[in-house]
Write a protein that binds this DNA or RNA. Sequence first.
DNA 1: TTGTTGACCTCTT
DNA 2: CAAGAGGCCAACA
Length: 130
Amino acid sequence: MQVKRKKEKILKKESPRAVGKQYSFFEDVYELVRQIPKGRVTSYGAIANYLGTKLSARMVGWAMNGAHHVKPAVPAQRVVNRNGMLTGKAHFSTPTKMEELLAKEKVKVKNDTVVDFEKLFWDPAKELEI
DNA sequence: TTGTTGACCTCTT
DNA sequence: CAAGAGGCCAACA
């Protein structure tokens, strides 16, 4: 994973355990998510896959869990599951926050699912050319 | 310190 | 075709 891992010092209080490592899955996830273009979306699996461990898509979700109190803000609303469903909307400040944020980016959401998900899908492996 | 859980994905029955 | 289980890593009790 040749992600632009800037030697930032995030994960201060977020990942006490990761402090010793300096870098972690989370950091890479945040970096990647921040690079998602406006109006585009991607999936947990794609991120996990890009980072090398496609089997740890769950961790991407965990990373998002802490994304709320991380700065700069991580556009977690652009990350959905494989079906384009807003599974993590419940974790936002309000259940509709995620949908609203996407709406501002001209991303249509219907029944908690991103419309034209396949078209708006942003594959990091391709866009960033691993 | 060990065990359970979690915003998921994929393979197997 | 539908349902179940496994697997990754980190946080929390």
